[in-house]
Design a binder for these strands. Structure first.
Length: 424
RNA sequence: CGGGGCGUAGCUCAGCUGGUUUAGAGCGUACGGUUUGGGACCGUAAGGCCGUCAGUUCAAAUCUGACCGCCCCGACCA
């Protein structure tokens, strides 16, 4: 992609509405724009990252035996009345009325819809288990939208649902999903912890949250790295400024570490909570009608993007982990009016593309400083710098965003080196 | 919803104890020139229903009220 032709509107100044680094940087890097409180547009750069994250999740979900589908966002009121959640969810559900005055909710989660689908199609224990998931825009009329896409009223979620004939089957699938989640968050480059949690509104018997360590997180945990013991921390009296209570590890007695965290995933053992109420049943080996044993597994896809920035940025901008970086490298000809510089950059850009590298070329007629600042702001891991000064020595320069490490190489040496550096 | 803050150019902000001109600056944008390794400099220009409506007044960006919107703290949540 040529920067001169791209729609990546960067900003030098921080919009006053943004308080936390991820929100500020997403706006400044031209990834998102606000349409309304808690409602954001994903611009091409933001969208590209979203798709990268989505693909990592998709690969791991598929590997775990889940099948992707797409469910509607419009949910008939009657379906939610079956579980009593039309009332329970209340004002947090966005509601619309059709031309016949029929009421619909905009799906904040999909237990009702998926259970309805499965109960209509799965009649026998022989058809179980089945694991289905989707990527979809969820709508929640949050009491207080906050921090850009971190807590929006409209957001992208991967939600997955498992249906088993018995508790043993659910436990197997639950563990598969937990492992898939660990793979996903590791691939996203996160420092994260899994913690047992309350089930909240979704409900069920057992649930776990996946927390990314970041000091702008809305929640907090205690954790012990030696023993893998992790606990949710209650919000201290007096809010976030209050002093933090010390806790010792239940296993090794050492003092536990404390960190604020961002919840990016949540798994639930639902049991028969929904299937029983919705009369969603199958016939077991004995010909008896049984409700499905269900699990549900959510990941905040758009929130992952924000969390990644919270965990990896500096004063100059975002530092993308290689796995989810929108581009693998950026080629910076520092003076496009200089023919050798321009030609070398064009040549390198073409070579990298032919090697399958997703590369950005800053072919704008801008000063070096502007190009460096933008490249660092949008956080591309590898900068390839071509200048008059460098070419005089027959060299180009490769500089890493994360470490600042610099390699000076001939053009011929540069391509294999770049390919090595962008490996994930 | 309770508490707090804020709405002036695309962005950051000044002006606000009513009246000085035609509402300003920096950044950004367009054009010209000088520059060219970390957001350069000079000049010119475009860009505003001063959130909306009502009120007070000879006179409102400025005072008052209502409404709308946005942000922050709290309960809810991926």
């Amino acid at each position: 992609m040529r920067l001169s032709q791209s729609f990546i509107p960067t900003m030098k100044e921080i919009p006053s509405e943004a308080q936390i680094p991820s929100h500020q940087l997403m706006l400044r890097a031209g990834m998102i724009r606000k349409l309304s409180s808690g409602v954001y547009e994903f611009l091409p750069l933001g969208f590209k990252i979203l798709k990268k994250v989505e693909q990592i999740i998709r690969e791991e979900m598929n590997a775990a035996g889940a099948q992707e589908l797409l469910l509607p966002a419009l949910h008939p009121k009657e379906l939610w009345e079956e579980t009593g959640r039309w009332e329970i969810y209340g004002d947090e559900m966005m509601k619309v009325i059709d031309r016949n005055k029929r009421q619909f909710g905009l799906g904040p989660t999909h237990e009702e819809v998926i259970t309805d689908l499965v109960r209509k199609e799965v009649k026998s224990y022989r058809q179980l288990p089945v694991i289905l998931y989707q990527f979809q825009t969820k709508f929640r009329d949050e009491i207080r939208p906050r921090f850009g896409i971190m807590r929006g009223r409209e957001f992208i979620m991967k939600d997955c649902y498992s249906f088993d004939k018995d508790e043993a089957g659910l436990n197997i699938n639950y563990q598969k999903m937990v492992q898939a989640y660990k793979n996903i968050f590791t691939r996203c480059g996160f420092d994260f912890r899994m913690v047992q949690a309350d089930s909240g509104n979704i409900g069920g018997n057992l649930s776990h949250e996946f927390m990314v360590l970041a000091n702008t997180g809305e929640e907090a945990i205690y954790y012990c790295d030696a023993c893998q013991v992790t606990l949710k921390a209650n919000e201290p009296e007096g809010g976030q400024t209050a002093s933090i209570e010390k806790k010792s590890c239940t296993a090794c007695q050492k003092e536990m570490k404390y960190s604020r965290v961002i919840e990016v995933g949540h798994t639930f053992n639902l049991g028969t909570k929904y299937s029983a109420k919705m009369k969603a049943t199958f016939l077991d080996e004995n010909g008896e009608s049984q409700p499905y044993i269900m699990g549900c597994y959510g990941i905040g896809v758009s929130r992952i993007v924000a969390a990644a920035i919270e965990q990896s940025h500096d004063a100059n901008g975002i530092i993308w982990p290689r796995q989810i970086s929108p581009y693998q490298a950026i080629v910076l000809p520092l003076d496009v009016t200089n023919e050798p510089v321009k030609n070398t950059a064009e040549d390198l850009y073409a070579q990298l593309q032919s090697q399958g590298i997703d590369v950005l070329l800053d072919d704008r007629d801008e000063r070096a400083g502007v190009k460096f600042k933008d490249a660092d702001l949008i956080g591309i891991p590898v900068k390839v710098i071509i200048s008059i000064r460098g070419l005089a020595e027959g060299k180009i320069e490769i500089k890493l965003r994360q470490t600042g490490e610099v390699f000076k190489l001939s053009v011929a040496e540069a391509v294999p080196k770049i390919m090595e550096l962008v490996q994930v």
